[in-house]
Simulated assay, not measured.
Amino acid sequence: MFPPAISDIIITGELAQRGSGDPDYLREKLAFRDLAHDMANTPGEVLPRLVRLAMEASEAVSAGISILDRDAGAFRWFAVHGSLAMFEGTRAPLDFSPCGVTLASNGPMLMRHPETVYDWIREAGITVPEVLLVPLRVVAPGEAGAVGTLWVVAAEGGHFSQEHARVLTELAAFAAVALRMVQSEERLQAALRDQEQLTQEMTHRVKNLLAVIGGMLRLTARTSNSKEELLTKLSGRLEALSAAHQLVRSSFGDGKISGVTLRQVLATVLRPYEHVLMNGPDVHLGDHATNSMALIFHELATNATKYGALSTERGTVELSWSVKGDELSVVWKETGGPVVSEPASEGFGTSLVRSTVSRHDGRMIWRWFPEGLSISINIPTANLVR
């Protein structure tokens, strides 16, 4: 079933041969009652407490939960206690770890010195005389499958028994349900945060839209010789502004290359504004990157219209970009507008731009010169195809 090297360290059969004390069912009943109370009232505290209970019940030197992340092909160590607590958050490969073997066996697994087979354990400087693992599985209507493992480590070999495996299995069943509850709570809170962010963003966009339209009306009126010319110019700019808003969307396709280039995005977003000079190569974008680039430069143009170079007839924006190695480098430079200085606090729009760049693992630097704002943005090209 397993490769010879792994089979050599699996000693699960020894559990039934080892002596163990009488089970304390009353103590277990009270412990589970307390855990159930915590699950109902403070679900976030259940798993750390459950791990501590597993360590105490098995007289282990360390214990923890390995949460399965199939998308990443790995386990993440969570709620680690005892001698291995420093490795909280460590990732272990799904297809080459004691946890992976345990899920494949679908039952308790006892191993002796797994570091002799798994080099990532050995390279971390971890010595494991004996480890007992049990799978965490959810069996519920509409949801079934492995979610991770619960494990305990002994200070010496020959420590764990069949009784330890029984207690750990019962705790694992409780832990699987608790883990799903915690993850559901996290998803709910994330959804609420996203909804609040969306509400703030929509309010911000409406206020900006009104400010931009007002600025366009004033500038168009100054450069028009008749009401007919004003109407023609303003209508064209409003149509361009509408197209830009359509591009800044909140829904996406499959995240693959969309066929849109950075130049196309910038041309659409910046078409409502006069005196914007652009220079740079075609860079293909994925759906998410298309939305992000549109949002970033729509926000920068809006701010320039309200406070910067685009708020005056003489002001200009020079926008240039290039690909250097594995990075996209963009420079936004304003000149000819009012004298500017760094604001005392960061507004919602600036925060939105900064967080959008960060989501693509990018960097952003703002420089406030008297003649105008200069911004540099660097984003890994690999993150532009998503």
Rank of each mutant, 00 (worst) to 15 (best):
M1F: 10
A5L: 09
I6S: 10
S7Q: 08
T12C: 10
T12E: 10
E14Y: 03
L15Q: 01
Q17E: 09
Q17T: 08
R18P: 05
D24F: 08
R27G: 08
K29F: 14
D34S: 04
L35S: 10
L35G: 07
A36T: 04
A40W: 13
A40V: 11
N41I: 14
N41E: 08
R49G: 01
R49M: 00
R49I: 00
V51N: 00
L53A: 04
M55Q: 09
E56F: 05
V61K: 12
G64K: 00
S66N: 08
D71Y: 04
F78I: 12
S83H: 14
S83R: 14
L84E: 02
F87D: 11
F87W: 12
G89R: 00
G89I: 02
G89K: 01
P93N: 10
P93S: 08
P93E: 08
L94Y: 01
P98G: 03
G100S: 01
G100C: 02
V101K: 03
S105K: 11
G107R: 09
P108C: 10
R112D: 03
P114W: 01
T116F: 15
D119F: 13
D119L: 11
E123Y: 05
A124P: 05
I126Y: 10
R137K: 15
R137Q: 14
V138Q: 02
A140T: 05
G142L: 11
G142A: 13
A144H: 10
A146D: 11
W151Y: 09
A154R: 02
G158T: 00
S161A: 15
V167F: 06
V167P: 07
T169H: 15
E170L: 11
A172Y: 04
E186R: 05
Q189H: 07
A190C: 11
A191M: 03
L192K: 06
D194M: 14
L198D: 09
M202G: 07
H204T: 03
H204M: 06
N208K: 03
V212Y: 04
A221V: 04
T223C: 13
K227F: 11
E228N: 05
E229D: 09
L230R: 02
L231H: 13
T232A: 14
S235W: 11
G236F: 04
E239Q: 10
E239C: 08
E239N: 06
A240H: 09
L247V: 02
S251M: 12
I257W: 13
I257C: 13
I257L: 14
V260F: 14
T261Y: 01
L262P: 04
Q264I: 07
T268F: 00
P272D: 01
Y273C: 05
L277F: 15
N279I: 05
D282E: 14
V283E: 00
V283D: 01
V283P: 00
D287M: 12
T290D: 00
N291F: 06
N291Q: 07
L300S: 03
N303D: 15
A304M: 06
G308H: 00
S311M: 07
S311Y: 07
T316Q: 03
V317T: 05
E318H: 10
S320Y: 13
S320W: 14
G325I: 08
E327N: 06
V330E: 01
K333P: 15
T335L: 15
G337L: 01
G337V: 02
A344Y: 06
F348D: 00
T350R: 03
R359W: 06
H360V: 15
I365A: 09
I365Y: 07
I365L: 11
P370L: 03
E371D: 08
E371R: 07
S374P: 04
A382D: 11
L384Q: 03
L384G: 02
